[in-house]
């Protein structure tokens, strides 16, 4: 009796374990199946231009996108006929409009976080998908891919982006000092190393002029004394929004008495960035780094 019982006990445990495992697999499949189906059918709004661009490159068209500031040249042509939502601080899209178009999922940005809880109350899932640093680009694409059921396409997009970025960031011996300033006004807000534009400039080989300033926001009002002392070789101005006045913007910087002694102004190396390329993350990272190197860093 003792021998039989001892022999049957492990067998019973093995069968019990198998049954449990099978149940767990079945439960997992049952939970995953409707989710995967929904991913194909769900109505997605991409407020962040990065998410809109990534989605369309993965073959999924959002039902609406957020407005792009500073021109629409970076917008994928396939998104041009998609409904565009106006965004306003700090909520992002108008919540009544969102309630009307009833998306299942919204790819948003932390800059619109104040509207997130209200969207959630409307029954909308909100996912932040707007990288603020180069290191977040590929993980964000993977996240978007997972949420819309296009993980394989996300992988392919990442591979192609990596190829372009690697080409654009080939080692260079040119490291000019570059000051990047946001907007023009009574104060110059300098891009710091942790800003999106600052990271792109450094990836292109530029030596970003920050005077050692740090700020979690990525921008700081840099002393003109530091600008004169560090003497940038290149100054890039990033206008707010509308870039129609590019000529005027460059003129203003070139005539700024405080900066006239810098190499950048003396040698006519004052450039104006367009299309929010140094402010707004996009899937065109490699192209923009390439542009910085070929247009601004060339002939230095």
């Amino acid at each position: 009796m003792t021998t039989v019982a001892a022999r049957t006990q492990p067998r019973f445990n093995r069968i019990h374990g198998l049954v449990m495992l099978l149940a767990a697999v079945l439960l997992g499949l049952a939970l995953a199946a409707p989710h995967a189906e929904a991913a194909g059918k769900q109505r997605v709004v991409a407020i962040s231009p990065f998410a809109a661009s990534a989605m369309i490159k993965m073959g999924v068209k959002p039902i609406a996108i957020g407005q792009t500031i500073g021109g629409s040249r970076r917008l994928d042509p396939r998104l041009r006929n998609v409904k565009t939502l106006k965004l306003s601080h700090p909520n992002g899209p108008n919540l009544e409009v969102m309630a009307k178009i009833k998306p299942d999922l919204v790819f948003s940005s932390t800059r619109w976080s104040k509207g997130t809880s209200a969207m959630k109350r409307l029954g909308i899932r909100v996912v932040y998908a707007d990288p603020t640093g180069l290191g977040q680009v590929y993980p964000t694409i993977r996240k978007i891919g997972r949420k819309i059921g296009r993980s394989a396409q996300a992988g392919r997009l990442i591979a192609s982006m990596k190829k372009r970025v690697n080409r654009a960031t080939k080692p260079t011996t040119k490291h000019p000092k570059i000051l990047v300033v946001l907007g023009i006004g009574t104060t110059a807000m300098a891009f710091l190393k942790n800003s999106w534009g600052g990271q792109l400039v450094r990836a292109a080989g530029g030596n970003l002029v920050t005077g050692g300033a740090t700020n979690s926001g990525g921008f700081a009002r840099l002393s003109d004394e530091v600008v004169v002392a560090q003497n940038p070789d290149i100054i890039v101005v990033v206008p707010h929004g509308n870039s129609d006045d590019i000529g005027q913007v460059a003129d203003y910087i070139e005539n700024n008495e405080a900066w006239q002694t810098t190499n950048a102004v003396k040698n006519g190396k004052v450039f104006v960035s367009v299309d929010n390329e140094l402010l707004q993350a996009g899937t065109d990272v490699g192209q923009i780094i390439g542009k910085i190197r070929s247009k601004w860093l060339k002939n230095w």
Binding site: L182, I184, G185, T186, T187, M189, E225
Partner: peptide, 15 residues
């Protein structure tokens, strides 16, 4: 953000 410094008051180094 560009307007903040004017609104809270500040001098600039514009020669």
């Amino acid at each position: 953000p560009n307007a903040v410094f004017f609104l809270v008051g500040g001098l600039t180094s514009t020669g």
